[in-house]
């Protein structure tokens, strides 16, 4: 699948990491930086797991509401960076 150029303000490497993390929970799918969480088949069960993993891997507790409104790996990466810089 072609990688799209992301307009994210987050570091490209973080965006890629987030996309790969998501892919673990969407078994059998490749996840790109602008892919929509819900279009991939995501729901609260997936969201709970992803938010837990982000807390483990990055030490950032994403707000539930912000996560589901962010919807793409590149915007979630922005949230993680905001969370890191806030501490």
């Amino acid at each position: 699948m072609e990688r799209q150029v992301t307009a994210s303000s987050a570091q490209a490497s973080l965006v890629d990491e987030v996309a790969q993390l998501w892919a673990e929970f969407f078994t059998g799918r490749e996840v790109g930086p602008e892919d929509d969480f819900f279009a991939l088949g995501g729901n609260s069960m997936t969201g709970i797991k992803i938010i837990d993993r982000v807390a483990e891997d990055y030490g950032v507790q994403l707000s539930v509401r912000d996560f589901y409104l962010a919807q793409t790996p590149s915007r979630v990466a922005e949230l993680i960076e905001q969370g890191r810089s806030a501490t």
């Binding site: 729901n43 609260s44 969201g47 709970i48 938010i51 539930v64 509401r65 589901y68 409104l69 919807q71």
Partner: peptide, 15 residues
């Protein structure tokens, strides 16, 4: 409604 329907469902289930 928060954002859109799928987000509203996911947020509420999750919380």
């Amino acid at each position: 409604l928060v954002g859109h329907e799928a987000a509203t469902l996911a947020i509420s289930h999750h919380e």
